[in-house]
Design a protein around this nucleic acid. Structure first.
Length: 591
RNA sequence: UCGGGGAUCGUUCAAUUGGUAGGACAUCGGGUUUUGGUCCCGGCAAUGGAGGUUCGAGUCCUCCUCCCCGAACCA
């Protein structure tokens, strides 16, 4: 095992090392701030599916709380009825659970609409908020620009009574959608743009999936978030870097509200920002993900090429691997982008230890053993060979694999002529069949086009143990499937969805960088024991990689079906031969 | 243009707060091996730049450069 001590354990809630956030929490606990309490929250908006970027935030929010014996709520930031729906709520709850975390409570910002409304009236009555009749364009223009101060709205000094009356009318639908907003009265000259009289409420004559038609006004993120934190008793409100400038507003609202009335009347919550997780060759923008799905570039939100949690699950990524990855990359304030290879290495580490092994051939080539014994009727005998299920885990036991005179082997494992460092089967050479015998190639049958259609070998009965009694060695062990017992499978092989590190950098549109052939489906065969692999389970096809049995495909889900079983390649094995070939190709290109 | 944040091996995270710049991924070489897997050993390789303080600077000070975020009735 590589030393990944910073990664901690895959158990949810265990310490993942130290970082500026954990240092802050430790210092607060030591000083008695918040009465020693620690509480965080994961606050998604239910307008899309969770992706790998969210996983970092989820792991951070939940583990920081758990490490201190604190709590972490799942809170839906559902303040914008235009884009939100209960399907996303259910999906997010399921994805958080799949990742391995259990919120103490599930809350909704929309549950706080009454409190928020009362507080808004309070701010109005104190002259700290006003109704603005300007349209969005005028408000934007009045805000000024970078380096230019804003100008006061003509409605900024509206009398309190009038503000109150108008605001109440807005709430019950007496004003058209978009005609007015409620704004905090802060400072139009403030150097921080967020403080130039931000909008608190906008008029939306829109149905809310939880509140129905009760409201005609909806709070903005800034007006809802910190107050939700305060109501729930959040101590450490962790969010991403782009909210750094919003912190002044977060603090302003809380400082001007009577929080002493709340259950958690100690210190008010504080926001801390950290860098979001980005991956190269990957897009997490909700807008672009939606285009990929809706324009049919992928098969749906759980297409294994996507970075959504549902897709990673379908592809076979173990949640423990994602957690370990998130713990390992740590948390800092530096923008950075990790290579997907790092995540994959955690996936391999986890799967190497846990995935049962089977043999499958993805691009079959017939191998005939010319000296294999037959019965009295001339039919080849069948021998059952014992194969280990997982060399990393003795308790996984062994299985019986049928072996006979006609086998399928991988096309890649035979060449008429061996290039340098090619150790596999060539005419005249001997290799070992995994869990089988040594075989020596004596002949190859080719078709009119010169393509090899059949490899003919002799086997050495003395090598049943996998070793030759005379001590001779082979340089390769290859996998195989008995032709008479082969179970049909389909294997979907995936490449990166985008073949550039920063999709969209070239032309501005990420879709211009879509990998033209990010999925290749092979029609192959597997040993009979693949039928033990349950839908959703990950298996290692020896020498090929880790593959996840699809949940829905007919061959997997319907016991009697004759349809091929469908497997998604989770990730390939490290492949030294591929590296050698790649290097050779690059050297060739340089010359 | 203004405000905020940031800069350490190819990538990424760390450096006991001023004391030998370390790990992982990737890569290269070797060993073990019935998976060219796993595992083990080893190599390569970094403090954005210029000054300053100090016995000593990735860390403190000054200036510069570059990158990210901010002018939604999105979050």
């Amino acid at each position: 095992m590589p030393d990944r001590s910073a990664a901690g354990s895959s158990n949810p809630g265990e310490n993942s090392g130290s970082d500026f956030i954990r240092d802050l929490v430790a210092a607060d606990t030591a000083s008695g701030r918040f009465g020693g309490r620690v509480q965080t929250r994961f606050p998604p908006e239910p307008n899309g599916y969770l992706h790998i970027g969210h996983a970092k935030a989820i792991c951070l929010d939940f583990t920081v709380a758990a490490e201190s014996g604190g709590r972490c709520f799942l809170r839906f930031d559902d303040t914008n009825p235009a884009t939100e729906s209960p399907e996303y709520v259910d999906a997010i709850i399921a994805d958080v659970a799949w990742l391995g975390f259990e919120p103490q409570e599930i809350r909704f910002a929309s549950d706080y609409f009454d409190q928020l409304y009362d507080w808004a009236e309070l701010l109005i009555s104190r002259g700290l908020a006003y109704v603005d009749d300007q349209d969005a364009e005028a408000i934007s223009a009045g805000r000024g620009g970078f380096g230019q101060p804003g100008t006061d709205s003509p409605f900024r000094d509206r009398p309190v009574d009038e503000n109150l009356r108008l605001f109440r009318e807005m709430a019950v639908g007496q004003h058209p959608q978009g005609s007015r907003v409620l704004r905090a009265r802060i400072d139009m000259q403030h150097e921080n743009m967020q403080m130039r009289d931000p909008v608190m409420y906008r008029i939306r004559h829109q149905h809310h999936y939880r509140q129905g038609d009760r409201w005609c006004i909806y709070p903005t993120y800034d007006w809802a978030h910190g107050q939700g934190d305060a109501i729930e008793g959040v101590t450490h409100s962790l969010c991403t870097l782009e909210f750094r400038d919003n912190r002044a507003l977060y603090d302003w609202y809380l400082e001007h509200l009577p929080l002493a009335e709340l259950d958690y009347a100690g210190d008010r919550p504080h926001q801390t920002e950290f860098a979001r997780l980005e991956l190269t060759n990957t897009i997490t923008s909700k807008r672009v993900l939606r285009r990929l799905v809706e324009d049919g570039h992928v098969d749906g939100w759980d297409d294994p090429r996507l970075p959504t949690l549902r897709a990673l699950r379908r592809r076979g990524y173990p949640p423990a691997a994602i957690r370990d990855f998130c713990g390992f990359i740590g948390v800092a304030r530096t923008n950075s982008r990790h290579a997907p290879e790092l995540l994959e290495s955690f996936v391999r580490t986890e799967l190497n230890a846990t995935a049962p092994r089977r043999m499958a051939v993805l691009r079959p080539l017939k191998l005939v053993i010319t000296n294999w014994p037959t019965d009295d009727d001339g039919n080849p005998l069948v021998e059952y060979r014992e194969a280990v299920n997982n060399p990393e885990d003795q308790s996984a036991g062994t299985r019986q694999v049928p072996f006979s005179g006609e086998l399928w082997i991988e096309q890649d494992d035979f060449r008429l002529e061996a290039p340098p460092k090619y150790f596999r089967l060539v005419p005249g050479r001997e290799v070992r069949l995994r869990a089988g015998y040594f075989v020596r190639c004596i002949d190859a049958v080719t078709d009119a086009g010169g393509r090899v259609t059949e490899v003919r070998c002799t086997y050495d009965p003395e090598t049943s143990s996998g070793q030759a009694p005379d001590g001779r060695k082979v340089k390769a062990t290859i996998h195989w499937v008995s032709a008479a017992h082969a179970v049909p499978i389909e294997a979907a092989l995936y490449e990166r969805l985008f073949d550039t590190e920063l999709p969209g950098e070239r032309t501005g549109d990420p879709l211009d960088d879509l990998h033209p052939n990010s999925r290749e489906v092979c029609t192959g065969v597997a040993e009979p024991a693949v039928t033990d692999i349950a839908p959703g389970q990950v298996v290692q096809f020896e020498r090929l990689g880790y593959f996840c049995a699809d949940n829905a495909a007919a061959g997997n889900a319907e016991p009697g079906s004759s349809a091929p079983r469908l497997f998604h390649r989770t990730v390939g094995l490290r492949d030294e031969w591929a590296n050698i070939q790649k290097r050779r190709q690059q050297q060739g290109a340089q010359r």
